[in-house]
Amino acid sequence: MNTPASPPSPYSAALSSSKIESHTLSVLVDNEPGVLARVVGLFSGRGYNIESLTVAEVAHAEHLSRITIATSGAPETIDQIHHQLERLVPVHQVTDLTTSARSLERELAMVKVRGRGENRADALQLAEAFRARIIDATTESFIFELSGKPGKIDEFVDLMRPIGLVEVSRTGVAAISRGPEPI
C-alpha cells in the first residue's frame, strides 16, 4: 500500500513524488511550417519546462530539422514528454540523450563586457582561461565568444558580472551522441 506524505492534490499524488532531473531531448522533425509551434505548444499546453531550445535544418534535401530541447522534471514527466513528442505527426524520432547514450552537449555564447584598467586585464585573463575568443573590441569593451557545456558558460558569465558584464546572447544547447553511430 502506498501512503505518500501529504500529496499536493489528491489527483496528482501518484506519479509526481520523484525528484527533478534535467534531460536533453533530441527531436528529429520534418521541416514543415508550424512544426516548431507544435513542439513548443506541446510544452506550454501540458505544463512542461523548456530550459533551452535549439532548432536548425540538418538535412536540406530531406527537409529534416533537429530540435534539441533541454528540459527538467520528474523521471515520469520526462518519459511523458518523450512519448507526447513522438505522438506529433511530423516527428521522426525522439531521443533522450541524457539516458540513452553517452552524448556531447555544447552551447555557444557571446558575452559583452565593458570596463577599463584593471577590469579589462582581468577580463582578458579569465577569457584566456576559458578559451573564449575576442570577436569585437573597443577601448572600453570586449565581446567574447565561447562554447562549451551550459555550466561552463554560466560560470564564465558569473565571473564577468562584477567585472562589467553588459549582456549575453546564447544559442541554447546542441547535442549529439558519441561514437560512430547516429543518434
Binding site: 499524488a13 501518484a14 515520469e76 511523458q80 507526447q84
Partner: peptide, 27 residues
C-alpha cells in the same frame, strides 16, 4: 478518483495504441 488510493493492491496491464497514455496518470 483519488490517485494515491487507486486500486492499491493490483498489478496493472495497460493495452493502448497511444504510448503516451501509458504511465500518464497511473503507473
Amino acid at each position: 478518483g483519488r490517485l494515491d488510493a487507486f486500486s492499491p493492491g493490483s498489478k496493472k496491464i495497460h493495452i493502448d495504441i497511444d504510448r503516451s497514455s501509458i504511465n500518464k496518470n497511473v503507473k
